[in-house]
């Protein structure tokens, strides 16, 4: 059985705006899935439903076989960690060390264990030298890693990253890829929302395309980038290499190596 499942979910915000309509998807443990789609497609809404921050207006969200409606957000969040799209919505401690430790401290985890876990998470996110820094003294791109570390440290079964690639330079994007690979290697699931198609082709095997409140396509990445109709409807572009290859009439190419092989 799938660890995380959305069954025919609708969701409307309190102002009556319907953000999701008849959405279903399921995730097994150990997967890396990219959610892609235009601004306003409902990506953030869908992941907030998985994490219990929002509860469906219709249909069910099942986490580990239990519907989120019967659980408090804090219970769901212990299994499904969510890193906010905007780190400033999430950070509220005055040093990075405290910020990362906050959740553990509140859960009354033993002090020495907190220290070890925080240090490990900080190292993973390249923040080991910034533990005493005020979060707002770091640039936006690195603040995002602070929030990733604070989610990692809680050790959730599923980790959701909302647009982690936005505004990141090449080394940071690589660091992000390493983090995702590391989490996957420990048998967990990573769900990432991103607009970076190069990142999608490199790091993920499965993709979910969303457009206008719906799931348009849920398939291996290679298949998504072969489907002209879906790409057009979701206003998505292929990775640059694939665009280049196509202009030479070569199809089915997503990475540099594939292009070299095809030529």
């Amino acid at each position: 059985m799938a660890y995380l499942e959305l069954c025919d979910v609708d969701f409307s915000y309190s102002n009556g705006f319907e953000a999701l309509h008849h959405v279903s998807m399921r995730f097994e443990m150990g997967e890396a899935v990219a959610i892609i789609g235009q601004n306003g497609a409902g990506k953030t809404t869908v992941v907030k439903l998985m994490n219990g921050l929002l509860k469906p207006s219709r249909g069910q969200v099942l986490v580990d076989g239990v519907t989120t409606k019967q659980q408090r957000t804090s219970q769901v969040a212990a299994k499904v960690g969510y890193v906010f799209q905007n780190p400033d919505d999430q950070i509220f401690q005055d040093t990075i060390g405290k910020e990362i430790a906050y959740g553990l401290v509140k859960k009354k985890v033993e002090k020495s264990a907190v220290k070890a876990k925080v240090a490990a998470a900080a190292r993973l996110c390249g923040l080991e030298d910034e533990m005493e820094t005020h979060p707002y003294d770091l640039p936006f791109s690195r603040r995002k890693f602070v929030t990733i570390a604070s989610a990692l440290v809680m050790d959730p079964k599923v980790l959701i990253l909302d647009e982690p690639t936005a505004g990141q330079d090449a080394p940071s994007t690589r660091l992000l890829a390493d983090i995702i690979q590391g989490v996957m290697a420990s048998g967990k699931t990573v769900i990432t929302i991103t607009h970076d198609m190069e990142f999608v082709t490199k790091e993920f095997s499965r993709g979910i395309v969303m457009a206008k409140k719906h799931v348009l396509m849920d398939a291996p990445i290679a298949e998504i980038f072969e489907n002209d109709e879906v790409l057009e409807e979701a206003h998505l572009k292929r990775p640059y290499i694939a665009q280049l290859a196509r202009s030479y009439g070569i199809r089915g190419v997503l990475t540099d190596e594939e292009l070299l092989r095809a030529m």
Binding site: L53, A77, F84, Q90, K106
Partner: peptide
Amino acid sequence: DAQKSRGIE
């Protein structure tokens, strides 16, 4: 919301 999503009651 930020607190809830970190498993805090």
